[in-house]
Structure formats: C-alpha cells, structure tokens
Design a protein around this nucleic acid. Structure first.
Length: 575
DNA sequence: GCCGTTTTCGGCCCGACTGTTTTCAGTCG
C-alpha cells in the first residue's frame, strides 16, 4: 500500500465524518495526517516494516498510527468501514457539487434519502429539495447547474496551460487604468504542476471599474459572484478565476494570503498567534486590533512582522519552509540560468522535428554549453528507433559537427535506450559503451507487476553503460498515474551505482515529482533536469522542470547539469 | 485527533459572499 492510498483513505474518512457532523478539529487532524503522509519522502509501509514509530511524524498521533498499521497489514480500516455502513461513499459526490457542502449533503441524505447525483438531480427537478430547511428555489437551481459543472471542476489544468490563460488575463487587466499593482497568486504562483483556478490580486481605488473591465475579458463566460472586493467568473473552458481588489497598504498581506498554500498559511497564522498577533489578508494586528504599520504593504514586511523571512512561493507547502524562514537560512533554489546543458532530446532521426544542428543552435541561443542527442532505440518502432548501425552513423555526424564548431559548444553522443519488457537493454553493450551519455527508459510493458517493473529499472541502473533513468515513474499528469514501482529500490540502486535520475521537464510528465525529488535528495542522488525536446521550442520546457525542482527545494548543487560537462562526468565517477 | 517556550488539558486560522434568513449558517478559498 502506497502513501497516496493511505492518505486517500484518511481523507475519505475525514470527508465522511464531516457529513456525519463530527468535530471540525478531528477532521483537520485526519486531513493534516493525510497531507503529512502524502508529503513523506519515504514509504509509510517501509517505515512500519522497519519497526519505526509513526507518531514521530508531525501530524500523526496514536490513533492515526494505529489506523496506518491496520491499513498496511490488512488493507482495510475498521473505522472507515463502519462509517461507510452508515453513509454510502456516493454521498461524498453530493458534497462535491458547487454550493453543496457537507452540511447540505447531510441534510439531503438524512431528510430525503438522497445518496447519488442522479437522485439529487431528480429531486431538484421535482422541487423536493426546496422544501428542506435552509434550501430555497435559488439553491435548487444552483445545484442543478452545479451538477452539470462537476466534470469541469474536477479537471485541473497543467501549469503550462494555466500559464497561457494567466498571461492572457494579465495582458487584458493591465489595460485597465484604475489598477496600480497586479499579481497572480494561488497555486499558479506556487508553481504547482496542476492549477485548479486562477487568483488575481489588484490594487485599485475604484473596484467597480476594475470589475467591469474584468467582465470584458474575452475569455469571460459567466459570473459566479460579485461583491465590493471580490468577483468570481468562469472562462469558456470552465476555469474559475477569482479577482480580489485590495488597498495598497494591504497588497503584501493579501498576496501572502492568496498565494497560500492553505496549510502554509495555517502555520504562519499559528505562529503569529503565539506572538500575540493576528494576521489576515489586510495586515498584521495586535490584541487590541491595532495594525502594525506597514506590515501589509509587501510580503517581505508581512513575514518580517511575524518574525519570518520571506520565502519563494514554490516552497510554501508547509514542509520545512517555516523552519527555514525563522532564520532566513533557505536553500539557494535552482534557476533556469543555472542550467548548463540539456541531456535529453530527439531529432528527425526518430520522432523529433529538427536536425542535430538545429537543436544545437537553439540550445546555444538559450545560453546552454552542451547538449546530448538522445534519440529512441529500435524497440520504439513507432518512432523509427535507431539500431546500432544508424546510431553509430549519427555519432559520426555528431563528431563532424563538433569538429567544425569553434565556440566550445559540445554535442554529446547519446541514446535513449529502451529497457526491454523481459529486462535488459535494447542495444548491445558494445554499442552503448561508445556513447558519451546513455539514458535508460521504459516505454513498453507498463502494466507489468510492481516487481517486474522494479527489476527492469534496477537492472538498467546496474548496467555500467547506463548513466541515468529517464521519467522514472512513467506518469502522465491527468492521464495516467505511472506504473507500479518500488521507488525505494530504485533510489537504493541509483545511489549504490552512482547513477542519476531524471526530472523530465515536459509539463505533462514532470517526472520525478516534487515528493520523489525530495526523497532522491535524501539518498544524495544527483538529478538531471532535461526537456526531452522533440523540436527546438521544446527546449523552453526547461522552466517547468525548474519550477518543480524549486518546489522540492533543490539547489544547483543537487542538479547535475548545472555543472560543466567534465564536472558532471566526475560526479558520476567517470573521467 | 493532535499537540506542547501556556506541556497531559484546552486549545486548534480567518474573512467574503450568498441565500435564506430577520441575525445567521453554509460554502468557499
């Protein structure tokens, strides 16, 4: 049982107990525990097998620890099963309808016996819902509308997709003369791999003028709500965008507040409270509700007022950033500019769209010092993968291009060699041994058992010709979760054989993810951030990988390709 | 249910907006 599975059960338990009307603090405790487990860089099941005390983990106490033991050993949780006897799982779907929360879901279930979305829809249509206390005609209509929106709501955009919308929104809003400051907050600003909605924060005197302008954005589809300081809309593609208008003296406080994460904010608030301060989106206040002068103006002033240093938004997930912020001793996060080489890309030889020289020139233009050409090997028939003969010919060509270059830019002779279904590499060792850089990756047999997949990848890491495993979990964000794999064994093998692991910067992959990156860091495994570009523009994907690495608090030292090529070789124990 | 520079009890983050209400509960972020 994986951490994500355990976290999911605990969250489900909290959701069900909420509908039951259980104390909010208990719910928070379960949800905190779920979050803590999801962020854990080690597998809880391994911790249990090793006999470690789970209550040492922040957020896990005696009760949750027992439930984890139970889940890992039996696959079930008695408490959850009991609650499910009382409230069917499908009632949780009711609470996912916009405007319906746990209280309304509970009323619908208890008073009308509604347990599914189908039943809810028909009850609204026959106007039985507006008979209930606390429900009215408008609520009934809102529920019907909300049911239609559920599919859209559950769809989160890739960060890169959200970025395109965000830039369009910013360009439109900057045309509004009433706005003096503007910033996007929320998970977008934190660089999360997916974004559920956009939060736009502006400073303006005339809120109405700003809101009217917001309503004229070409992606505007419908109004969700509008008050004196807050307006929410949906775009044609179903993305919710929230606008907040704040006075200049509160901009920093509001930016901090709306950037989140929620868990981060809760911690900052607790800390402020300990110091006898109250914080909200308007500023920092003492017990007599008197504002700390200037504390709301900027994020820096805001954090300083509660005794913390301001930190990059990517770190604000209530992991270790508050601890670092107390002293200001943050890791020096990796940046796009610190990357010297891109070590995973394709050309027209297989499924890429540009030639070796075009890729090299595009890399030069982006300030890189070296690249590796890593086309597919022959098993990837769909991409016309290379056999030894074609590969050796490509390497000759690379030698020629390198000889003719006079600016020190280096093209490495590489290959993305498939790990075969039965294990072993797709190309013979005598070929691989002649490469400068060998990536091993798995494209076929992804549905094999956890043991089989793990053995294949560990086997590749043991091969002396292999330098790195690319996109190690195989996930595609929002499409598939990645194959079953024992990452603990992968980290072990990579560490033992001095191999690298890839952070694939493709916005749909971002593989390894932030939690696995932190785990790799604990094993001292150098990470290589690569674009896997299939055309020259693909080299720009680097920034998505950088964002993910920053979220994992990685520094240039943690990333192998921040080094010149000779130093990177040394890091791998090769000369 | 978790936690402890207030340490085994008594707290636990905070505000905007909406709809259904006549002063507030529920939802949302």
């Amino acid at each position: 049982m994986q951490n994500a599975d355990i976290a999911e059960r605990l969250t489900e338990l909290a959701d069900l107990l909420e509908i039951k009307g259980e104390s909010g603090f208990k719910l928070r405790a379960y949800r905190n525990a779920a979050q803590a487990i999801e962020d854990l860089p080690v597998q809880l099941a391994d911790e249990i097998a090793a006999g470690n005390d789970l209550t040492k983990i922040d957020g896990i106490g005696k009760s949750v620890a027992e439930k984890c033991h139970e889940l890992v050993s039996t696959g079930r949780m008695k408490k959850l099963d009991e609650v499910l006897e009382e409230i069917p799982r499908s009632v949780l779907d009711l609470a996912r309808v916009p405007k319906v929360g746990p209280k309304k879901a509970a009323a619908l279930f208890r008073e009308l016996g509604i347990a599914t979305l189908e039943q809810l829809k028909s009850a609204c249509e026959t106007h039985r819902v507006q008979e209930l206390d606390g429900f009215g005609e408008k609520t009934e209509q809102a529920i019907l509308k909300g049911i239609g929106q559920i599919a859209e709501n559950s769809r989160r955009l890739l960060w890169a997709q959200a970025d395109a919308v965000a830039q369009d929104l910013l360009a439109h809003m900057k045309e509004c003369p009433a706005i003096s400051q503007i910033e996007l907050a929320g998970s977008y600003r934190r660089g999360k791999e997916t974004v559920g909605d956009l939060d736009l924060l502006v400073v303006a005197e005339a809120a109405d003028e700003v809101m009217d302008h917001f309503g004229k954005w070409k992606q505007f589809e419908s109004l969700t709500g509008r008050g004196p300081t807050k307006m929410s809309i949906r775009t044609g593609k179903g993305l919710q965008v929230d606008l907040r208008v704040v006075p200049a003296e509160s901009f920093g406080a509001a930016l901090q507040y709306f950037t989140g994460s929620k868990e981060h904010n809760v911690e900052v608030r607790k800390l402020a409270k300990k110091r006898g301060l109250k914080i909200n989106e308007y500023g920092v206040f003492d017990e007599a509700d008197q504002p700390t002068a200037g504390a709301g103006v900027s994020e820096e002033a805001f954090y300083n007022a509660v005794g913390l240093k301001v930190m990059p938004p990517e770190l604000r997930e209530n992991r270790r950033e508050i601890e670092w912020a107390a002293t200001g001793d943050f890791p020096d996060l990796v940046t796009v500019a610190s990357i010297q080489g891109d070590l995973h890309m394709h050309t027209t030889a297989t499924d890429g769209r540009n030639s070796i020289e075009e890729m090299a020139d595009a890399a030069r233009k982006r300030g890189l010092k070296y690249i590796a050409i890593t086309d597919h090997s022959k098993r990837v028939t769909m991409a016309r993968g290379l056999d030894s003969e074609r590969l050796l010919a490509q390497w000759k060509e690379i030698d020629r291009i390198n000889r003719e270059a006079d600016d020190g830019f280096l093209i490495l002779k590489g290959i993305e060699c498939d790990i075969l279904e039965a294990g072993g590499m797709d190309l013979p060792d005598e070929t691989l041994a002649q490469a400068d850089w060998v990536i091993a990756s798995l494209h076929y047999g992804q549905t094999q058992s956890r043991d089989q997949i793990t053995d294949r990848i560990v086997g590749a890491l043991q091969n002396p010709n292999v330098w790195i495993v690319a996109h190690p979990t195989g996930r595609l964000i929002g499409r598939r979760g990645g194959y079953e794999i024992d990452m603990g064994a992968v980290f072990q093998a990579a560490s033992e054989h001095r191999k690298f692991l890839e952070l694939n910067a493709n916005p749909s992959r971002l593989d390894l993810d932030d939690v696995n990156l932190m785990a790799a860091r604990l094993h001292n495994i150098p990470i290589v951030i690569s674009t896997d570009a299939h055309q020259t523009e693909g080299l720009d994907d680097l920034r998505y990988g950088i964002l993910q690495a920053r979220r994992a608090a990685l520094t240039p030292a943690d990333i192998a390709n921040t080094r010149p090529w000779p130093d990177l070789k040394k890091l791998a124990g090769r000369v």
